[in-house]
Simulated scan of single mutants.
Amino acid sequence: MRLWSAGCSTGEEAYSIAAVVLKHFAEAGRHDLRILATDISRRVLAVAERAEYPADRAEAITPELAALMFERGGEKLRIRPALRELVSFRYMNFMEPWPVTGPFDAIFCRNVMIYMEDDVQARVWAGLASVLAPGGTLFTGHSERIGPELKGSLQMVGKTTFRRV
């Protein structure tokens, strides 16, 4: 199984995905499951790879999930090794040739397109659809819209969720 957090910023989304996977499938680390997390900023990728966050970052998640995700390290929270092993962080600029080929079973690309012009958005959405496995799921942000040119390849299954036909 391949999952992709596109525009991952400092890694919270990718690690949260890993935590949910491990919560429901504790043996995931022994199987061929990988989470790719990409971003255009090498600075935020360095933060993500460090896997240390201020303690207040855990306030918005359930205590059960926080216990699964973090180990305490003084004033910081450190992502548990089992989660870090599932996630690979890589630099990626949507405007350059993509170093990914897929197929991905799920792509999380939330609140990334809001910074792009319509024609660039259409090109990126088409690229994401092309590396999504048949039956795979694309998760978008609440303020993002996929253009009509992808109606034949992506079917809306929720407000911000699309499945590749």
Rank of each mutant, 00 (worst) to 15 (best):
A58C: 05
E64G: 10
A46G: 04
D56G: 02
A46Q: 03
R42F: 03
L33T: 12
L68N: 09
A46L: 05
A46K: 02
E27N: 15
A82D: 11
R72A: 12
R43C: 02
A82R: 14
Y53I: 00
A37C: 09
T62L: 08
Y53L: 05
P63E: 04
A51K: 00
S41Q: 09
I61D: 10
I40Y: 14
D56Y: 11
E59H: 08
R42C: 06
L68D: 04
I79R: 01
A82G: 08
D39Q: 10
E49P: 03
R43P: 00
I79V: 06
R80P: 01
P63C: 06
R84G: 04
A51W: 00
E49K: 14
R43L: 07
D32T: 12
A48H: 01
G73C: 13
R34G: 11
A55I: 06
M69Q: 13
R78G: 08
A48N: 00
R78E: 10
G73D: 14
L77Q: 03
V47M: 05
E52A: 09
D56H: 07
P54F: 05
A67P: 00
L83C: 06
L68Y: 13
D39I: 01
L83G: 02
A46N: 03
R80I: 10
R30E: 15
R50E: 02
L33A: 07
R50T: 02
T38H: 13
P63T: 14
D56S: 07
F70A: 11
T38S: 15
E75L: 10
R34A: 15
E75V: 09
T62I: 07
I79M: 05
G74W: 00
P81I: 11
A60N: 06
R50C: 03
A51S: 08
R30T: 10
R30L: 13
A55R: 06
R42A: 11
A37T: 12
T38C: 12
A58V: 01
D56Q: 06
L36T: 15
L45R: 01
L65N: 06
L33P: 01
P81M: 09
P54Y: 10
R72G: 05
